[in-house]
Simulated scan of single mutants.
Amino acid sequence: MDTETSDEPLAVVQPSGPRRIFATAVLFSVSALLLILAVVTPPSSAGWLIYLLVCGGVALWLTLRLWQATHASIILTRDALSTSDGTHLCNLSDVAGLDRGVFAFKPSNGFVVRLKRKAPRGWAPGLWWRVGKRVGIGGVTSAGQAKFMAEMLAAQIVENTENSIK
């Protein structure tokens, strides 16, 4: 009999405080530089002025999204991968494999979960993304926590495969 319930966390990945602050500061600096450049020394062409203002505004919006998104953490349970704010990333029964090698297209300090079927797109800057049959975990997260979660997820995949064979 298994004493752990399916809701108990097996692993948690949280944003690293210094990485979160650094990433937000860099993105804010880019947005501030673009907006200041547009206001202090506006280009002679109206098109370039609009371009600078739009890029600065988008960078400022991304700064806010990054700061808000990195308040959450990612939680692995026996059944699913989700965030602490309630966003469901994927069921473990839908996981086909993991990509965590050096040359894998993955977030910084993270890994990619390959799914058996497509999932709706989603994105929390600096924390996770989901496109097609892939879910990327990482960004401003701790490398050690992400590596531990990847190992636990790999073990869960093997356990689920063995249980489905029986």
Results as ranks from 00 to 15, higher is better:
residue 104 A to P: 14
residue 128 W to Q: 11
residue 141 T to V: 15
residue 97 G to Q: 10
residue 132 G to S: 07
residue 91 N to T: 03
residue 138 G to T: 00
residue 72 A to I: 01
residue 122 G to M: 07
residue 100 R to H: 13
residue 130 R to P: 09
residue 112 V to W: 03
residue 83 T to E: 12
residue 74 I to F: 10
residue 84 S to Y: 11
residue 119 A to R: 12
residue 128 W to L: 14
residue 123 W to H: 06
residue 131 V to G: 04
residue 80 A to C: 14
residue 89 L to R: 03
residue 86 G to N: 11
residue 133 K to Q: 14
residue 92 L to M: 11
residue 127 L to A: 07
residue 143 A to N: 09
residue 138 G to Y: 03
residue 85 D to E: 11
residue 73 S to A: 12
residue 104 A to I: 01
residue 135 V to C: 14
residue 81 L to V: 04
residue 122 G to V: 04
residue 141 T to H: 02
residue 131 V to M: 11
residue 110 G to N: 01
residue 139 G to L: 11
residue 76 L to V: 04
residue 83 T to I: 04
residue 138 G to C: 06
residue 123 W to R: 00
residue 116 K to E: 15
residue 75 I to A: 07
residue 109 N to K: 13
residue 95 V to E: 09
residue 129 W to H: 06
residue 117 R to V: 03
residue 94 D to W: 00
residue 120 P to Q: 09
residue 110 G to L: 04
residue 134 R to A: 12
residue 77 T to H: 10
residue 79 D to T: 09
residue 98 L to I: 15
residue 108 S to E: 10
residue 73 S to Y: 05
residue 88 H to E: 13
residue 134 R to Y: 05
residue 124 A to Q: 12
residue 97 G to W: 05
residue 75 I to S: 04
residue 82 S to I: 00
residue 107 P to C: 12
residue 113 V to K: 01
residue 138 G to A: 06
residue 122 G to W: 00
residue 95 V to A: 07
residue 131 V to R: 06
residue 116 K to Q: 15
residue 99 D to C: 08
residue 87 T to R: 14
residue 124 A to T: 00
residue 133 K to S: 08
residue 112 V to R: 13
residue 132 G to D: 01
residue 99 D to W: 01
residue 87 T to D: 15
residue 109 N to W: 04
residue 77 T to E: 13
residue 105 F to N: 09
residue 115 L to I: 01
residue 71 H to D: 09
residue 113 V to R: 02
residue 73 S to K: 12
residue 136 G to M: 06
residue 99 D to R: 14
residue 131 V to C: 05
residue 72 A to L: 07
residue 134 R to T: 05
residue 132 G to N: 05
residue 142 S to T: 07
residue 122 G to Q: 05
residue 117 R to D: 15
residue 127 L to I: 01
residue 85 D to P: 12
residue 95 V to H: 10
residue 83 T to C: 13
residue 80 A to S: 15
residue 94 D to V: 00
residue 108 S to A: 14
residue 124 A to G: 15
residue 122 G to N: 08
residue 133 K to R: 15
residue 91 N to Y: 11
residue 93 S to V: 11
residue 86 G to M: 08
residue 85 D to A: 06
residue 95 V to P: 14
residue 119 A to C: 05
residue 118 K to I: 01
residue 88 H to V: 03
residue 76 L to G: 03
residue 99 D to F: 01
residue 135 V to D: 10
residue 110 G to M: 04
residue 127 L to G: 06
residue 111 F to R: 00
residue 87 T to E: 15
residue 126 G to M: 12
residue 103 F to L: 15
residue 115 L to V: 01
residue 142 S to L: 13
residue 111 F to P: 10
residue 118 K to H: 05
residue 128 W to H: 14
residue 105 F to T: 02
residue 113 V to D: 01
residue 95 V to F: 09
residue 87 T to I: 08
residue 72 A to C: 13
residue 116 K to I: 03
residue 120 P to Y: 06
residue 90 C to F: 07
residue 96 A to I: 01
residue 88 H to A: 13
residue 84 S to L: 09
residue 81 L to M: 06
residue 88 H to L: 14
residue 127 L to H: 03
residue 108 S to Y: 03
residue 85 D to N: 13
residue 133 K to H: 11
residue 128 W to S: 10
residue 131 V to H: 02
residue 100 R to E: 13
residue 141 T to Y: 07
residue 96 A to T: 04
residue 119 A to H: 12
residue 116 K to W: 02
residue 137 I to G: 08
residue 76 L to F: 08
residue 135 V to I: 14
residue 97 G to S: 10
residue 71 H to E: 13
residue 99 D to H: 08
residue 77 T to P: 15
